[in-house]
Structures are given as C-alpha cells and as structure tokens.
Design a protein around this nucleic acid. Structure first.
Length: 255
DNA sequence: ATGGCCATCGCGGATGGA
C-alpha cells in the first residue's frame, strides 16, 4: 500500500498536474492540501474517470483538504472533533478496513508572536489532544500533510537565517515532538535520504533551482505500521512542471 | 534588502502563504 501527501496550492490550477502525477504514481491514497475550493466545485468526476474515489473538505479561497483513493474511505471525519475551527484543515478516513489516514493542513502561523501564531499553537494542542484518543481507536494510523514545521536544522536550507523564524521556532517544534511522543515516527527518517531533502521551495529567487527549501511536509506512522514501511521519498519531479505548486509530494510505501 | 513569487478576488491592490 502506497500513500502520499501533496500541498497543491489550488486544485483549480493544479488538477491536471495531480491527475498526471497519479497516472505515473498510482498510489492507494493521496492526501491533498490547499484546495482553495468549495465542496461544490470539487472535481469528483475527473478523479472517478482516473479510477479514484474522493472525499473532500473544501473552503472557498483558503485551505481545503481531500483524500483521493483507489478504494472508498470509510468513517470519514472532517476537522478535529473537540476543537472548534472555522477553517477546513483535516480530513480522516479508514482504508483496507484498519488503516486510518489523517490528512492535514497545519496552520502557517505567519510570524512568531502574531495572532496567527497563537492560533497555530492552539490548533496543534487541539490536534494532539484529539489524536491521543484517536490512536487508541486506530492503532494503525498515518498522519500526513503539510505540517508547516521543520524538525530541526537538517530540514532547513539556511538554519542560521531561519533561527526562531516561522516553521523553525522552539514552540512549534515542541508541539511537533509532543505529537511524536504519542507514538508516531517520521517515515522519512527511517531511511537514508539525499542530503538537503526538502518538500517546499519559495517561488521567489529561484528557490527550487538553488535548492533553498524546507522539509515541512511529513508522513508520520504509528509503531504498529513502522515495520511495514519499506520506503519513503520526496518526489521533486512535479516541482519542475510549468506553474508548479511550491510543494512536492511525499510518498510512503507500506508494503 | 523595506524585496523577489504565486493564488484569490475581481479588475486594483490587499491578503495569505512560507
């Protein structure tokens, strides 16, 4: 079973790229973030023609998440039960009866100390409190998406320049580590990876060409799934497309 | 470098992203 996550920065713009990617990377489940599209606009038919089911949790202009899958997802849950939020950031479903997939678009946070930063920290706490009980119900769980947090300096092209900046603060990393402490492991770091592996590059200043990026898109798995993880990689190919998303897909092989 | 780029809304330029 292969799963992937990809922040596509507008499904309206990037639908052809998503379909193209799926045709050469026929994963079982693809979590999408930043649809920037309301549910009534979601292209279920286009995915169906490609042989994929889809469940979405959209929002006009901002945010929006979806799960694209070969088999239908069951027990679909939108956002974080118990955490009141007017933004569409999380969608969860079960596949192959007992694999629970949580696709998430974590808040950006804009700037440490800002209202958006405080919202990010509150959201992270809400996610953690919910996942603690969710992991009891679903021991085989995958949490993947755009986390908007780096683990450490290895995830940042310019650690000195980014020190204490958004995505790299101690507060964000504390919350990320607290999530891991619930019993999750970073699939990417289970394997040797190319040096300077990033999942996002700024559109400005030839960020991708110069590999000035950050690894902020992650796939975390529970201990029960860890023995099944045979590979995890970042696919930089779509970042070379015309009009690319600023993020690249991350893929995990659970076979 | 007080920035660069991109998507949205909507038709100019602000807002958000990261």
């Amino acid at each position: 079973m292969k799963l992937a996550t990809w922040n596509i920065n507008s499904l309206t713009v990037r639908l052809p790229q998503v379909l193209d990617w799926l045709s050469t990377n026929p994963v079982d489940v693809l979590a999408l973030q930043e649809l920037k599209m309301s549910d009534d606009k979601f292209p279920h038919a286009a995915f169906a023609e490609a042989g994929y089911q889809s469940v979405c949790f959209g929002q006009k202009t901002y945010n929006g998440v979806a799960l694209i899958s070969k088999t239908p997802g069951t027990s679909v849950v939108r956002n974080i039960p118990g955490f009141s939020d007017d933004m569409a950031r999380v969608i969860s479903a079960s596949f192959d009866s007992d694999i629970r997939v949580v696709g998430a678009y974590f808040p950006n946070g804009q700037e440490p100390g800002s209202d958006k930063f405080e919202y990010k920290l509150a959201w992270l706490k809400g996610l953690r409190d919910w996942l603690r009980t969710e992991l009891v119900t679903y021991p085989k769980l995958v949490l993947m998406g755009d986390f908007n947090i780096t683990f450490d300096d290895a995830d940042v092209w310019d650690p000195e320049g980014m020190r204490d900046q958004i995505h790299c603060t101690d507060e964000e990393r504390y919350e990320l580590n607290a999530l891991m402490a619930l019993g999750l492991v970073d699939a990417h770091r289970l394997f040797a990876q190319p040096a300077k592996s990033y999942s996002w590059w700024d559109y400005r200043d030839f960020g991708f060409r110069r590999n000035r990026g950050m690894r902020i898109d992650h796939i975390l798995v529970t201990g029960a799934l860890k023995p099944l993880v045979s590979a995890c990689w970042i696919d930089k190919t779509p970042r070379k497309n015309e009009r690319p998303s600023d993020h690249a897909p991350v893929v995990v092989d659970l076979s």
